[in-house]
Design a binder for these strands. Structure first.
Lengths: 160, 160
DNA sequence: GCTTATTCATTAGCATACAAATGATTGTCG
DNA sequence: CGACAATCATTTGTATGCTAATGAATAAGC
């Protein structure tokens, strides 16, 4: 039977030590970044479950809502309003275009820009998913009471 | 000069209406999912800025910390502990293997499993980034006061 | 007005993140 | 013990999300 000392010596010969070595005072599960990642993961799962359109992602939904709000908007401007960089919003819009939910047309006053608007199908979808979207927000916050929800959203907004 | 009425009529002929159409009572910027996404984005940016190793991502860091805590662990088990599905943890570990931060060896008691441990370089890196990681958590929460931070983390934990 | 800087949109490359399918191995249950 | 279920790891495909580079068009400064 190998002793602990011998075992450790052998492992050090291999150059790696599989002994547990937790860092005092640093718990991954308590870090705000890890918790934000997991909370965002949970919300995404709730969204896909509840939005009622298996192709529509949270970012595509955000783009759709923002175009609906504004009527028309350039791609980069839409990206700024939905917190997506130009490369990301490009892909999101491309997929909405393929589905026929968004239309593009040139901006007469600035030939660099392409303006976006909702197609009739896009308008129809945008309207029909607002109900599910409200339910998704409610379900995401369902572990919290009413006062806790308001507090949480207040604090979360301060972290943006 | 075109009137508004004529302009709208022409647009309806195109099948799309670029008129603004905000939904009463639904503000994208107030939705918990959008706020979680943006807060997570901000944290990731702070992480990349502060971790001190331009190649190390938040998920790679989480995997590194968890292997350090446990000494050795199978890949799928590590994924469960860090909230990554098997496909995601596979890629994360692959990149840590390429960098020589993690080592693999077979589990004698279960030939399906491959056990993971930190290499000496992995141990060194894991130890050296704990200080920056603490600073990253602090900076992420810096918009909040002490009491607010505790409240926020409590509520965030309830949402996992 | 002309150079310079900025902005718009796209592209390539890399890193999560998930669903679904696969093959190998192990566990369970009749 | 032998069929069936479950688990481990991988692979493929799709969708964010970022950096960096590009070319076209506009804005700013001198």
């Amino acid at each position: 039977m190998k002793t602990g000392v011998v075992s450790i010596a052998m492992r050090e010969q291999d150059g790696a030590d599989p002994a547990p070595d937790p860092t005092p005072g640093y718990v991954l599960e308590h870090q705000v970044g890890h918790l934000l990642r997991r909370a965002h993961q949970r919300h995404t799962s709730i969204f896909q479950e509840g939005i009622g359109d298996s192709q529509l992602t949270p970012t595509q939904f955000a783009a759709l809502m923002k175009i609906k709000d504004l009527g028309q908007v350039s791609q980069n401007q839409l990206g700024r309003l939905t917190a997506m960089d130009p490369a990301t919003i490009q892909g999101v819009i491309q997929r909405l275009l393929v589905r026929g939910l968004v239309e593009r047309y040139p901006d007469a006053s600035d030939r660099r820009c392409t303006l976006l608007r909702l197609s009739p199908a896009g308008k129809q979808l945008a309207t029909s998913v607002i109900g599910p979207a409200r339910a998704i927000s409610e379900q995401t916050l369902s572990p919290l009471g009413e006062a806790e929800r308001a507090t949480f959203l207040d604090l979360l907004r301060k972290l943006i």
